[in-house]
């Protein structure tokens, strides 16, 4: 977070209000909370955790430092990245890998959530190449996690730097970030895989709504 604030000179818009809202929301429920943000850069999860909690609050409330689900190939080959992934909470995943491996990673996420921790998973699976929520890329795994955990809530979050046009590795230095979010409990009349897919679509719908609100506010 020192890197984000001091070296990269990032700023969170209305940070006090964002954190007040977030803390009030998470106090409302003891249920598992899965955080599902949009995805534009590889720093999204770190910036979002910083924006929502702030360093001191997260130190005192370590369970709210979310478990991340990075693509294994994004950090496995680089020593510094591997060290960073080891220091923060990470459950690696192989995108497009064997179904059994994916299932194993999802089971780990379900486990940490059921123990009162929180996890952050990008519903789109990868950074959006268009800069907008890509509905065709919505990952079924999000719905599957929600389906497996009774009373699981989802915090859909929209994070975007003012200078972020499309996707990138990291946001531009000195960028200022808009953050908005919505907590909801998905519900479905379906069973089996249709239930999981329904949940994933509900998450996607809320992300789209948050994105529309962001762009409406910029006009």
């Amino acid at each position: 977070m020192f890197i984000l604030r001091v070296i990269m000179r990032y700023r969170i818009q209305n940070v006090a209000e964002v954190r007040r809202r977030f803390r009030a929301l998470v106090r409302q429920t003891d249920s598992p909370i899965l955080i599902c943000p949009n995805h534009l850069t590889m720093a999204d999860s770190a910036i979002l955790a910083w924006a929502l909690g702030g360093p001191w609050w997260l130190l005192r409330n370590y369970r709210w430092v979310p478990w991340n689900v990075p693509e294994l190939s994004n950090f496995a080959g680089v020593g510094l990245d591997r060290a960073a992934a080891w220091m923060v909470k990470c459950i690696p995943i192989v995108r497009g890998g064997p179904r059994e491996d994916l299932s194993h990673s999802l089971a780990k996420i379900e486990h940490v959530l059921s123990r009162g921790e929180t996890a952050l998973i990008f519903a789109e699976g990868a950074r959006s190449r268009t800069g907008r929520i890509q509905l065709e890329s919505i990952a079924h795994g999000v719905g599957r996690i929600v389906s497996a955990l009774p009373d699981c809530h989802v915090l859909c979050a929209y994070l975007r730097g003012d200078r972020q046009e499309t996707w990138s590795t990291i946001p531009a230095r000195g960028d200022s970030f808009y953050v908005d979010f919505e907590l909801f409990r998905p519900d479905s009349q379906h069973t089996g895989m249709r239930r999981s897919r329904d949940f994933a679509h509900q998450v996607a719908d809320r992300l789209v709504r948050l994105e529309e609100k962001y762009f409406a506010g910029r006009q």
Binding site: R99, E100, L102, S103, A148, T191, G192, M193, R194, S196
Partner: peptide, 16 residues
């Protein structure tokens, strides 16, 4: 599921 009138669970699909 639609074509064969069956129901598949997430765990079943892991084997595919």
């Amino acid at each position: 599921e639609d074509a064969f009138d069956i129901e598949v669970e997430d765990e079943d699909a892991d084997s595919v």
